[in-house]
Simulated scan of single mutants.
Amino acid sequence: MPDRDLLPVEAGVDRDELARVEVRSLVASTFTSEGVMFGSMSLVGVEAGAWSPQVIQEFRLLNAALVARLNLEHARRSLAEAIEARAEAQAANQQFFGAVGHELRTPLATVLGYTEALLDDAEHGTADGVATGMKRDGPVIVRSCERLLTIVDSLLGAGRAMSTDDERQEVRLSDAVADVVHWHRTPARTAHVDMQAVIDPRLAAWGHPSAVRQILANLLGNAIAHHHPAGGTVHLSAEQLLGESGHPMVRVVVRDDGPGLTSEQLEHAFEPFVRFAAPATPGSGLGLSLSRTIAEREGGAVSGMSSPGAGSSFWLEVPAYVPQPSPE
């Protein structure tokens, strides 16, 4: 730019800023990596006039050297971060499978122990004694089996969501939420919970449809399960926003008016098998943990906020679908 006064009318703010710092002419270049800008370099002059070809050439050489050096440093840091992330993921997997083994062992041991007791009654006791033992121990066995089934269902659902090999695609949030609400009609009716969804039909995510639906199903299921004894309302809403990286994201919020969580409980709510509900409340304690893992695979996140007595809000945030311009 040989003279700031040559800037177009719509660049008036830039022209005024250059005048304020007494810059009359300018040479600038951007630093990019894989199409993303991460810096810039400029030469400025206090007088108007064209820059010499030698200065431009040396500027380009310096720019190329800096970009190459910065990209190399970025690659080194990315490699170090990848190694560290792999170690953390390995430790998390070991902890997760250890927790799964522990959680499965408890109900299995219960089923085995009570079944052996019933078999002993059947072999050595009377018919009345067997009937009494069945009435006493049968419900415990049923609850333990239901616990096992819940854990297995959670693991299978997460496995299906994470093992899909299909390409990412546009996921209409209104359709995904409608499906999830439909799936939860019966448990919501049983719990006297009213589900209300207001989703802009124009909002769409970019990801795997099964993963988005699995996460929303977990969040809505939790909201229904952790209701007040007299029932309540669950609201589902969505919005578009910019993520921390500046990329467009969409967020689906599931808000309930249940008993809520303390800040300490919320801090541990995403750990596997951590539950703060009453013992009679169904659930495996895996929903939030698996949802966060699936969301991170999709390039997003799952988070929440809560206050005792004021309900909870948990949300899924994933990349937004951005229509590509037509070649025409």
Rank of each mutant, 00 (worst) to 15 (best):
T106I: 14
A131D: 13
V152R: 08
A99R: 02
V142C: 01
P139A: 08
T164D: 15
L156I: 10
T115E: 08
Q94C: 00
S154H: 06
D153N: 14
G157T: 09
F96R: 03
L148E: 06
E146D: 13
A109V: 09
D128K: 07
P107H: 05
L155N: 07
N93Q: 12
N93G: 03
E116K: 11
G101T: 03
G125E: 04
A117P: 00
E103R: 14
G157V: 01
G129D: 06
Q169T: 15
V171I: 10
G159V: 03
R105N: 12
R136S: 11
A92W: 05
S154I: 02
G113Y: 03
L149K: 11
L156D: 14
E103C: 04
D128T: 11
H124E: 11
D137F: 11
M134F: 13
K135W: 10
A122Y: 08
M162Y: 00
E116V: 13
E103T: 08
I151W: 05
Q90Y: 04
F96G: 05
N93T: 07
D165W: 04
S144N: 04
V142Y: 05
C145M: 15
V140N: 01
L104N: 04
S154G: 14
R168N: 09
S154Y: 02
Q90C: 00
A127Q: 12
L156M: 11
G129Q: 15
Q90T: 13
V100F: 05
R105Y: 10
G159P: 02
N93Y: 07
Y114M: 12
V111P: 02
V111H: 02
D121S: 12
G138P: 08
D137W: 09
G138N: 08
A92K: 10
G125V: 10
A91P: 01
G98R: 06
N93H: 09
L149G: 05
T115C: 04
L155G: 09
V140A: 10
E146L: 13
L118D: 06
A85W: 02
S144P: 00
A99Q: 06
L118K: 10
D166S: 13
S163P: 00
D153M: 06
D121E: 14
D166N: 08
R147A: 11
R168E: 11
R172S: 11
L112P: 00
A92E: 15
V130D: 01
V130Q: 07
R136G: 04
A117K: 12
G138Y: 08
Q169V: 07
A161N: 07
E116L: 14
G138Q: 06
V142D: 12
R168M: 11
L173E: 07
V111F: 03
H102E: 15
L108Y: 04
A91G: 10
A158W: 04
E116M: 11
E116C: 04
L148Y: 04
G101V: 03
L173G: 07
A131T: 12
M134V: 13
G98S: 12
V152I: 15
